[in-house]
Design a binder for these strands. Structure first.
Length: 733
DNA sequence: AAGGCCCTTCTTTTT
DNA sequence: GAAGGGCCTT
């Protein structure tokens, strides 16, 4: 086909730009992917660049696959040698090739988040730090942030107590990764940057090879990724990036949309192209979107426009509770499909947190409406799947102590914590990994010098398992991935073990079979390729495409997608924007962008939905409508008045303000006592020791009135109205 | 060593 | 309202 057909003027400019630096700022629905794929095809077909010299990077595997198939059809399959994939996959590949220059071996494994947390907990224990006071998760966050900003363990500051703790844990954590012959997600980037920055030969090799570097979703890059791109493009200087500041929603993972500004500074000669024509949405949707995002400061204003016409109004529905919210959504979709006005896959339902999917799923099931769901109860998170992967990881890399710990007693073979502890000690004393010791026991059994350290029973059990492992290791050299897989299953009698679970055994075994099917696809390749894929493929990538059913997904996962009709649920203060973002203006802006992303997914119909009360924690909470709703001009909105009545008729209480509770639970049963809140958001109150403060939030939970108060002296406090003696100063509002 | 029970805690988003 | 940790019993 003609590469330049159906391009508007800006798209044309971008696709045909001369070599050099190009920054494409692309509004939602403006044909960003089209530009990127045509550009690659243009380089190959029109500028005669061999695919071998092209590197194209995305954030998700889904985006990479999509791009590959589109480019492939544009250049008739002529993509031999192109590097097209996610940042993390690219780095894993590079590190695998260059491992001899690094402190780990090329059979390294990638540790997932659970592994990371285990490692941090181990480190805390060894350093005698109380994990109640220093939460492993929060330490991990700090380590991750540091890595994303290219701060090594030795460089981590220790100016205060907290930093000192993180600094120590970081160092030990990093040492443990190396000991396990493992890297974490952030390491993939960090080690690659370090390697390219410090080793001229390697840098030359790759930067000469990649004559053209192209990047999707550039606004989501973090500093490490930015530096990586700079290093890779350092020789030819041909770097083509596409992004949209307004869709930057991964700040919490280190993404920094200011990389867009950095790019313009670092490459003053760069050509900046704005894609402003939207081909997706109606004018109404676009107007709402613009109103939402305009409230954010520090952004490049864009003049988004569409030729698609005004379209229908946006609907807003306020349900009594979260169950009614879900019913409303499902009912709407169901009716539209029944009346043949739409098909299932026209619909998407988006929410802030995965936990919100549960009620939606239940509502779908009640209505008999088939649905698809992205993420949520993850396939790769299932116990039997994780166990099987741990076995494979151990075979790939016997130094992986975490996988060893996970599988050594699955199925139970009488090796418990005590024995494992001794095994670790023995290994440490011998300067080996537990895996090494185990393999040695497998070879020599009673003759091994280590044998005597264990009870006779434990020694024999370990030896047995050691010989199994050693057998699989040998098998790996000559057998395909799926053959290794089968050998493990058979030797440990995994099927019998799983099917012992009478209730779920069958479906759990099916999961294992599904995993085996995937392994089979890697029979031409190495076990390491398969494991790398398992580590880097997320559940977000496993969308059942074919099924014609509505899709449930988080707002984050929705980026890059589009649907005829979009429902955004949970438009409540505290949920969207999320309560955890409340204190940070930057995070509030990001919440707003998240909402913007959701809104701009809709082609024709947008439904905004909220619930006055919802259960979180198991108890009811009352919420105000999301402040983001205030941004949308009233004339774009059509309020859906009639609420769906469920349960007892008393539920049809007139709406009487967000802070008033209704006495009944979701099934209509009454609480023993009706609690009237005494306080209201906006009140000034006085506490006997903290002084004056402003009531920010009031909830009834567990039959207690709970307040969030911002005190002038000490900031936020969460307290119980019944205990804190508060004096009400005024009732403004 | 293993399994069961009760306690707490906590929850954003994910490569 | 789920999942993990600690403590109990067998």
């Amino acid at each position: 086909m003609d590469l330049l057909a159906n391009l508007n003027q800006q798209q044309f400019q971008a696709v045909t730009a001369p070599p050099g630096q190009v920054l494409v700022l692309a509004g939602p629905g403006s044909g960003k992917t089209r530009v990127l794929t045509r550009r690659i095809a243009y380089l190959i077909r029109e500028m005669g660049v061999p695919a071998y010299h092209i590197l194209a990077v995305t954030f998700t595997n889904k985006a990479a696959q999509e791009m590959e198939s589109r480019v492939s059809s544009l250049v008739e399959g002529n993509l031999e040698g192109i590097w097209l994939g996610t940042f993390h996959a690219m780095c894993a590949r590079l590190l695998h090739r260059e491992a001899q220059l690094l402190p780990f071996k090329s059979n390294f494994v990638i540790f997932d988040e659970d592994d990371q947390e285990t490692l941090v907990k181990q480190a805390l224990k060894e350093l005698n730090i109380d994990d109640k006071l220093s939460k492993p998760g929060s330490i991990l966050n700090k380590i991750s942030t540091a890595k994303n900003n290219l701060i090594l363990a030795e460089e981590y500051p220790s100016g205060n107590y907290r930093e000192e703790i993180v600094s120590r844990v970081y160092k030990l954590y990093q040492a443990k990764l190396i000991k396990n012959n493992a890297v974490d997600f952030d390491d993939l980037l960090l080690w690659t940057v370090k390697l390219l920055a410090e080793n001229k030969d390697v840098r030359d090799a790759y930067s000469h090879r990649f004559e053209h570097v192209l990047v999707d979703e550039f606004q989501d890059t973090n500093l490490a990724q930015y530096e990586l791109l700079k290093l890779l493009a350092s020789h030819h200087g041909n770097i083509f990036v596409v992004g949209d500041e307004d869709q930057s929603i991964y700040r919490w993972r280190g993404a920094d949309y200011r990389n867009v500004l950095r790019f313009e500074q670092d490459y003053p000669a760069c050509r900046t192209i704005l894609l402003e024509q939207n081909y997706r949405s109606t004018q109404t949707v676009l107007d709402a979107a613009r109103a939402v995002i305009d409230a954010n400061t520090h952004r490049t204003p864009k003049a988004l426009f569409t030729e698609r016409g005004v379209g229908e109004k946006i609907t807003l529905f306020e349900a009594n509770d979260d169950r009614a919210e879900a019913d409303y959504v499902v009912e709407n979709i169901f009716q539209a499909i029944q009346s043949r006005k739409a098909k299932g896959s026209d619909f998407a339902v988006m929410y802030r947190t995965n936990a919100q999917s549960r009620l939606l799923e239940e509502a779908c099931m009640r209505a008999g409406l088939p649905y698809r769901i992205l993420g949520a109860q993850r396939f790769y998170g299932r116990r039997e799947v994780k166990d099987m992967i741990a076995y494979l990881r151990l075979v790939q890399n016997p130094a992986d102590e975490l996988s060893l710990g996970r599988v050594i007693n699955v199925p139970t073979r009488g090796i418990g914590d005590k024995t494992m502890e001794v095994l670790r000690q023995v290994a440490r004393a011998a300067g080996k990994t537990p895996g090494d010791v185990l393999l040695e026991l497998g070879e020599l059994r009673e003759k091994s010098p280590h044998f005597a350290r264990f009870s006779n029973r434990a020694g024999l059990l370990l030896s047995d398992f050691g010989s199994l492992l050693s057998k699989w290791l040998k098998g790996k050299e000559t057998h395909s991935v799926s053959q290794v897989f089968d050998a493990i299953i058979k030797d440990i009698r995994f099927r019998e073990y799983i099917e012992d679970d009478h209730e779920f055994g069958e479906s759990r075994w099916e999961n294992v079979q599904e995993l085996r099917r995937q392994a089979f696809e890697f029979n031409e390749k190495e076990l390491s390729d398969y494991l790398q894929r398992l580590a880097l493929v997320s559940d977000q990538d496993t969308l059942p495409e074919k099924q014609d059913a509505p899709l449930l997904l988080t707002l984050h996962a929705a980026k890059g997608l589009e649907f005829d009709t979009v429902f955004i649920v949970g438009l409540d203060e505290g949920l969207l924007p999320h309560a955890r973002s409340r204190d940070e203006p930057e995070e509030m802006s990001e919440e707003r962008r998240l909402f913007y992303v959701g809104v701009t997914r809709a082609k024709n119909h947008l439904h905004l939905v909220r619930a006055e009360q919802r259960t979180s924690f198991g108890a009811f909470e009352f919420n105000r409508p999301s402040q983001f709703l205030d941004s949308i001009p009233e004339e774009l909105i059509s309020r859906q008045g009639a609420r769906i009545a469920r349960g007892s008729k008393s539920r049809l209480d007139a709406y009487s303000g967000w802070s008033l509770p209704t006495p009944s639970g979701s099934n209509g049963e009454s609480h023993a006592r009706i609690l009237e809140p005494k306080y209201k958001a906006g009140m000034r109150v006085k506490h006997e020791s903290w002084g004056e403060g402003l009531v920010v939030d009031v909830r009834i939970q567990d039959n207690e009135e709970r307040l969030d108060v911002f005190f002038d002296s000490v900031g936020f406090k969460r307290l119980l109205a019944s205990l804190a003696k508060l004096e009400i100063l005024n009732k403004s509002q």
